[in-house]
């Protein structure tokens, strides 16, 4: 019995952590000042940067923060091309102009929940700030867009570029009510830090976001419970809280979900 209560307690802990995370995600306003801040800071360094610039990322490696069952700690990542910045509302507008099925009044429930493009006032009206990243888009939508411009990056590719372990104390970011999870939205790896890559304003979809099953052989009766709380993970770096947050977010997503601060960029 003590073992069981311990398991329950850890499950509760995990669920509560995720609830806090999700609550934060849902309630956090997508701060346009933060976006402007990120963009302008980057633009000062790289005045010529366009959001549809695609950069060549050299081969490298990805160190998952959890231990896989086969003990692999480092995953090689081949060289690939990646958009410098997330897809903007203006770019997505062009896409929905071309594709009737991806307009908010036409989209099917299978591929996007009701919140899809909920900050747009009409099928072809994204409202203000056309250069902001498009959000409230499902994985299906991101994938459809990227299939015309390449593809979505994989988790390994995304993490290889922007999953550098945070070394600064988290409290600096965490106490800022406007952007409690900003520190987890991407930090450039040392070897690409000089490249004009923009990360940190939104969470981003990846092709294989659904690649990490909860390794619980003793799954409970509720089919969704293992989706929300994997209790079989052993961490490689318990201090890499940002990686844990990204992992939690990815494993809690379904492909039709559309969140206020979840967008995407394409790879090639």
């Amino acid at each position: 019995m003590p073992a069981r209560s311990g398991q329950q307690r850890s499950k509760w802990h995990c669920n509560r952590l995720l609830l806090v995370l999700l609550a934060g995600l849902l309630m956090q306003p997508l701060s346009s000042t933060a976006l402007h801040g990120a963009a302008s800071a980057s633009n000062e360094k790289h005045p010529a940067l366009e959001s549809n610039d695609r950069l060549s990322i050299p081969s490298g490696s990805y160190h998952p923060f959890f231990k896989r069952t086969d003990g692999v700690l480092t995953i090689p990542v081949a060289a690939f091309d990646l958009d410098a910045a997330p897809v903007t509302k203006s770019q997505y507008l062009e896409f929905v102009r071309q594709h009737l099925g991806w307009r908010k009044s036409h989209v099917k429930a299978l591929v996007a929940e009701r919140n899809y493009l909920s900050d747009w006032s009409g099928d072809l009206d994204p409202g203000e700030n056309l250069q902001a990243p498009v959000t409230y888009v499902s994985w299906f939508a991101a994938r459809a867009y990227c299939s015309e411009h390449g593809r979505l990056p994989s988790v390994a590719e995304w993490e290889r570029v922007a999953g550098a372990t945070q070394t600064a104390p988290y409290s600096q970011d965490a106490t800022d009510a406007a952007k409690p999870f900003q520190f987890a939205m991407g930090k450039l790896a040392a070897d690409v830090r000089a490249m004009p890559l923009q990360f940190g304003a939104i969470w981003e979809w990846t092709e294989d976001f659904n690649s990490i099953p909860a390794m619980n052989s003793n799954e409970s009766a509720r089919p969704d419970s293992p989706l929300f709380c994997g209790d079989g993970f052993r961490s490689n770096d318990a201090a890499d809280y940002a990686a844990f947050l990204r992992h939690s977010l990815r494993s809690s997503l379904r492909a039709s979900y559309t969140l206020k601060n979840l967008g995407f960029r394409c790879a090639g």
Partner: peptide, 24 residues
Amino acid sequence: VRELAATLGFSYQPQGDQFAHSNL
């Protein structure tokens, strides 16, 4: 396969010659 799996909420990942995967 990735699309069908994502639609169903099924997660999987190659690990060696096996896969870590949901049971659904």
